[in-house]
Design a protein around this nucleic acid. Structure first.
Length: 197
DNA sequence: TCCCCGATTAACT
DNA sequence: GTTAATCGGGGAG
């Protein structure tokens, strides 16, 4: 469904890349050969001077990939049991990324149902940790290159027109609430459950 | 070294 | 609406 997004495409600030990622396809080649495809419907941007960002205090062992070249994955463990998938943006050393929060399952439904342990399509990828679990993405994929890796990549898909993009505050962050950097497809049934936003 | 807590989810009441 | 699960990051000392 279109060519891979290029290195240059990712080399912008996170708030620029984030809404442009809506409607794009996140594709995962599982170890067993299954191809899983998800249409991105919800994202959040994180910037270097952003107190809610893992990059805020500079690079650490965990966040090193966030400061690397754009177009790579940054994957982290949260609450000791969930993984979250991010796309690194900006130039080398910048420290910005876009969190992929939810997607519409397009292919590989059976594998995703198995990975998630649920049947309902709208529960497979409707949240950052759910999406990571459905696509079998964990710390072992941290730093993988979306432009060249065989296991995971991003395709052009069909970008959303601006009037289909809703902008809100980010979910679950206690600081950095002044920046409305969550971008979600308007009225999408595939987005994460609205938590008062 | 210690200690608090998080870009979450599911299962409670 | 509330809470347990579960663990490593990173600031404090």
């Amino acid at each position: 469904m279109g060519a891979r997004l290029t290195r240059e495409w990712f080399a912008r600030t996170a708030p620029e890349v984030a809404p442009a990622l809506l409607g794009r396809h996140l594709v995962r080649h599982l170890v067993d050969g299954t191809l899983v495809r998800v249409r991105i419907v919800e994202v959040e941007a994180y910037e270097p001077d952003d107190p809610a960002s893992h990059a805020f205090r500079g690079p650490t062992r965990r966040t090193v990939s966030m400061f690397g070249p754009p177009g790579h994955l940054y994957v982290y463990l949260i609450y000791g049991l969930h993984h979250c998938v991010n796309v690194v943006t900006g130039p080398v050393g910048y420290g910005s990324a876009v969190l992929i929060r939810a997607g519409e399952p397009l292919a590989g439904h059976a594998a995703m149902r198995t990975n998630r342990g649920v049947d309902r399509l709208d529960r497979l990828c409707s949240g950052p940790a759910r999406l990571a679990q459905a696509l079998e993405i964990d710390r072992s994929l941290d730093g993988s290159d979306l432009v060249g890796d065989r296991r995971v990549w991003l395709e052009a898909g069909e970008p959303l027109p601006p009037d289909r993009v809703r902008v809100t505050r980010r979910v679950g962050v206690r600081v950095g609430v002044v920046t409305p950097w969550r971008f979600v497809e308007t009225d999408s049934p595939w987005a994460s459950p609205a938590r008062g936003i």
